[in-house]
Structure formats: C-alpha cells, structure tokens
C-alpha cells in the first residue's frame, strides 16, 4: 500500500479494563477507494471507528490522517468534533443517530453548522439578517438540497427524520454526513436492516460517492453482498486483531477468515451468494 495512504493506523490498541477490544492494529487506508472492515460481532470494528473519530482515546498507538491541505493530522489527539471539522473524517452510526424530531432538511442544515455559525458571527449577523449571513444560509440550503437530490431523498425533504422507514433513515444519515464535506467517510454497517433491493441501491451509492464525488470510504459491513462487491480492499478483524487483508477475491478464500467465521451461522452462504 505504498500508493499515498489517506489514513495510517499504527499499532493501535484499545483496552477496556481486562478486555482488549483492539489489539495492535496497523492499517493503511488508501485514497479514493472503498476499504471494507469485516469481522464477527464483537471483533472491535465499531471500537475502531470510535478511536478514529475521537469518541474513545486509544490506549496506545497512533492514527494519522494525511489531509490533502492541512497535512498530517493526529486524530487521537483531537476531540470528536474537531475530527469532523479539522480532519474532515465523518462517521455514521451502527444504530442510526438522526435528529429524530427535526425534518430531513433541518438535519442536513445542522450538519453545516460550522460554516453557518461563522457567517452568523455569534448570531449577531443572523439576528440582523445581514446579507453575508443570508448568502451563507442560501448556500447551506442549496448544498443540502443537492445531496438530497443525488441520494434520491427529495420527496422526504420536510418529513420529520424519525418517522421515515429504516432504509430511508440510513440514507438520510449518509446524506447528512456528506453535508459535512468529508474526505474520509466512515460508515458503520450501513446495510444493516436493509432489504435486498435497498442493499443493491446502497452498493451503487457507495460506488458513485467514491468514483464521482471523490469521497474515500471506510466501510464496516456484515452484508457480504455489499462489502464483497464494492470494496477495493478488505481488512478482517477478529478479537481485535487483524487476521487478513487484501482484495475481496483473496479474502473470500483465505483460510483464516473462513475459520474465524465458522462459528457464525450463515457466512459461507453469504459468501457464496456474494460470489455468485
């Protein structure tokens, strides 16, 4: 992986008391690619995201984001809001976290808080409705609408986010994350709870984002039909350790991976289905 890595993870370890959720993990996440992270339940995938995005402070090791403009940014030193704002690493959550009582549009506008807050000058320019603020507000609205259009969510624009069907909520959460202008988008099981048709649409969306919008993606996923088909590169975790890494075709036949998953009920079926 010498091709300019976007994110370098070195010897990352995260312990909770006696439990080692991530054990000496090293990983390079390439630029403009989709990197899949798979592994059985409890393997430490979500914990890995939490360490990246400042929600957990790693016990040891380092995570460096090679920001194209700002240069290397050490993520483990930043509070979570700065990870999104400064390093432009934005995540979604395994259990969807939308602002349920706010509308879809409001969700997407809140995501542009920092730009808007700057334009509103501690709310003064906003309260006085100065043109500078109005312009920023219009831009934010436009940006929200353009992502809603691209993610085919326009029909829900004024709906309270919490009242939408599950699959739609997942897409709204991705649209909201995109409004933060991420360079690296970290998706935690975006296909969980989707039906096969929605999963297929998610595949297309992820490929579109990566190829057309130049968003690099780090993808935690259980749904093999998604992860095997869209990932350029896959990293497999088990008990917090990296047990395999490589192209999807190699991972599918890797004996360590198959063994790690043997306890899991339907992985081989899943893999077969994904390969078919």
């Amino acid at each position: 992986m010498s091709r300019q890595a976007l994110l370098s993870v070195e010897n990352l370890t995260m312990r909770f008391g006696g439990l080692t959720a991530i054990d000496d993990l090293s990983l390079e996440v390439p630029h403009k690619a989709i990197t899949g992270i798979i592994g059985p339940n409890g393997a430490g995938k979500t914990t890995f995201f939490n360490c990246l995005t400042g929600f957990y402070k790693p016990t040891s090791g380092s995570v460096v984001m090679h920001h194209p403009v700002r240069g290397p940014v050490r993520l483990a030193d930043l509070p979570s809001h700065k990870v999104a704002r400064v390093a432009q690493v934005v995540r979604t959550f395994q259990n969807i976290r939308l602002f349920a009582n706010m509308t879809v549009l409001e969700n997407l506008v809140v995501a542009q808080h920092n730009a808007l807050q700057k334009a509103s000058v501690f709310s003064l320019a906003g309260l006085l409705r100065l043109p500078s603020y109005r312009k920023a507000a219009d831009q934010a609205l436009e940006r929200a609408l353009s992502w809603l259009t691209r993610l085919k969510l326009m029909e829900f624009v004024n709906h309270p986010a919490g009242a939408l069907p599950y699959g739609t909520q997942r897409r709204v959460e991705i649209a909201r994350a995109l409004c933060v202008n991420p360079i690296l988008l970290c998706l935690d099981e975006p296909a969980a709870g989707l039906n096969p048709k929605e999963s297929a649409e998610l595949n297309e969306l992820l490929l579109y984002l990566c190829r057309e919008e130049d968003v690099s993606i780090l993808l935690i996923e259980h749904d093999m039909s998604v992860v095997m088909n869209v990932s350029d590169h896959i990293c497999v975790l088990n008990y917090g350790r990296k047990i395999a890494e490589g192209a999807p075709a190699d991972i599918r036949v890797n004996p360590h991976v198959v063994k790690a998953y043997l306890g899991e009920d339907d992985l081989e079926d899943d893999m077969a289905a994904a390969g078919a």
Partner: peptide
Amino acid sequence: GMRKLPTGRAWEAVREDEIACKALGI
C-alpha cells in the same frame, strides 16, 4: 430568531442527539 439560527438549530440537535452533533463537527 435564535431558533432559526445555527446556534438555535444546534440547541435542538443537542437535545435530539449529542453524540451525532459531535460526529458532525459541532
């Protein structure tokens, strides 16, 4: 007026989900 400004919207967003706010850079 505040409710329609970034600060006010962020108040409601914090009420709805503080962790999501942080993940969005707030």
